[in-house]
């Protein structure tokens, strides 16, 4: 069963995080990770791309690092754009580096689920989101996803502050 997260929890995470380490960044503009990185940048996040094959190069104005350990902190969130199996290694690295880099959240992308890694991270005091995209969630909870004709699931009579 997929985990269900309260919209308020996702909003709290997206509002408190400032810098995101994106593991599995791509330099190709058609790739979903590139789409997500570009969108999150326009929303004011700093996104640090990680991809050992592209280390030293630049994506969207940011230097690419080979690993979480090589990436200069602080970054509060690790966005896992890898397959579900690889999420375990990334999570172990993140737990080991949590206090040094200021990591508080492990966010596994749409289609990425690793309950063992999630349990490990939660036991270490980290917050975990799985099988979601921060771009889509940001858009969904800020009424931007709705512009594309998608069901946001948000029902409210409150006036949003702009």
């Amino acid at each position: 069963m997929p985990e269900i997260y309260a919209d308020s929890d996702i909003l709290r995470i997206l509002r408190s995080v400032k810098t995101i380490a994106l593991v599995g960044a791509s330099a190709k503009w058609q790739r979903p990770s590139y789409f997500a990185m570009k969108y999150l940048q326009t929303k004011g996040y700093r996104v640090l791309p990680i991809n050992p094959g592209l280390a030293g190069q630049e994506i969207l104005g940011e230097t690419v690092y080979a690993s979480l350990a090589d990436t200069p902190g602080p970054f509060e969130m690790v966005d896992v754009f890898r397959n579900s199996a690889a999420a375990m290694g990334v999570t172990e690295d993140a737990i080991a580096l949590a206090s040094e880099k200021g990591i508080r959240v492990i966010w596994m992308q749409l289609g990425v689920e690793n309950p063992e890694a999630a349990a490990l991270a939660r036991a270490a005091g980290l917050e975990v989101i799985m099988d979601r995209c921060p771009k889509i969630e940001f858009g969904r909870l800020n009424a931007e996803l709705s512009w594309g004709g998608f069901d946001s699931g948000v029902i409210t009579a409150r006036r949003r502050r702009v």
Partner: peptide
């Protein structure tokens, strides 16, 4: 490039039409 949500031209998307689209999806 479809990398962000937003409006370009009403042949593709329009804010009023988008409300109806979300309502029907729901």
């Amino acid at each position: 490039n479809l990398q962000s949500f937003g409006f370009i031209y009403s042949r593709l998307t329009n804010p009023t039409v988008a409300v109806l689209e979300e309502r029907l999806a729901s």
